[in-house]
Design a binder for these strands. Structure first.
Lengths: 201, 201
DNA sequence: CCAGATATGTAGTGTTCACTACAGATGTGG
DNA sequence: CCACATCTGTAGTGAACACTACATATCTGG
């Protein structure tokens, strides 16, 4: 009972290429031909390794959120709620206009609305955005407990707000907004968090 | 030279139905079969009237933005920059969760990323979102001239910010956020505009 | 070096897509 | 009532899609 022929491509590297195609064209707009060409493999290799197109997307999303979560750890490590929001939104402004990647955010570009055979793709993306929002909410809950946020502040609402702004910035980035424009948005957005904070020093 | 057989369907009514299909499934996710069924016509009638699928989308967008601009007139008629932002974002929260329409905003759901034959669809949507942003900017320029906004305020950045928040809210609505959740986001968001205002009475 | 197992490349499969040819229906102008 | 113009319904068209059958190649365990 041998172990069979080993695969000739690097799955993670191939995933990075697939990720970029989904990022640029969305789930439905990305074709298997584009994906296989970008990945440098043929369709049978893709299907053997990832099951089907949706499986490939999920694998790409796993990789994307994994890297993103590492960054989010740094974000929520900021000392105050205001600093968290600033670090998050300024970082988003930079990342979404990084020329190394397509503009915007994969969790939005991947597919907000889909056709009748792919209804769970938007659902899948939304679930991963919600994870992000939960991390923010937990951090803001702590900020409130620490007296960093006002007693009247609603941590869940604040987290939803920051999440909404970052999504909106992503859409703007994908339609051509440059880094400076996004930073200005982030700068204004942070002031709402500041308004909910206690120490405005 | 006769005038030919008159069309048997109401073009505006048919457009409303097509709009809803694009709104729910996006440009690429919407099929001609779904569109014609919703519109109550057959493909040749669609093509005779709107040219092709993209022409139909543009016609639907024209109708959408026309109705939206009427509403935007009411929004910018609010007395202060803060009131404009509040009226806009609270209205967005309500409209994007109106059960009479699909959730979210057609200018986002229509297609943020598209495949290789439809690159100008996202561009088209972005152009219409930019119109909206311009209306806000003009209003905020006026607010600054009237001393309603601080001297340090950047009307263009504020308009971009409000626009970004509304887009983010739209994405959230399409992924299940209810009206109350969106109103909370709007409430927080308005505070950033308030922070740029002079009279905080 | 052989048997079993898995990967690869070529070359398709059936299905669905946007779009249309065509014939018949329904109007207007003379 | 006739010539002409436009609409409508039926029934497709070729192209592109996600996906796969199959023969071949390359590994491991014995």
């Amino acid at each position: 009972m041998g172990m069979g022929r080993p695969r000739e491509f690097d799955a993670e590297l191939a995933l990075d290429q697939a990720m970029e195609v989904f990022w640029r064209h969305g789930y439905e707009g990305a074709t298997i031909a584009q994906l296989t060409e970008a990945m440098g493999i043929n369709p049978p290799s893709l299907y053997a390794c990832f099951g089907n197109k949706e499986g490939l997307l999920k694998a790409a999303l796993d990789r994307y959120t994994k890297l993103r979560n590492i960054w989010m750890e740094e974000v929520v490590a900021a000392p105050t709620a205001r600093a968290v929001a600033e670090r998050m939104l300024m970082g988003i402004a930079d990342k979404q206009t990084d020329p190394a990647n397509p503009p915007g955010c994969l969790l939005v570009q991947g597919g907000i609305a889909c056709g009748s055979g792919s209804e769970n793709v938007p659902f899948e993306l939304a679930a991963r955005r919600a994870q992000n929002e939960d991390q923010l909410r937990d951090r803001f809950v702590r900020a409130k407990a620490e007296g960093d946020l006002k007693e009247s502040a609603d941590p869940a609402a604040l987290a939803r707000y920051v999440s909404a702004v970052s999504v909106g910035m992503g859409v703007m980035a994908s339609s051509g907004a440059d880094r400076e424009a996004l930073r200005q948005v982030a700068d204004v957005a942070v002031q709402a968090v500041e308004a909910q904070s206690t120490d405005k020093t």
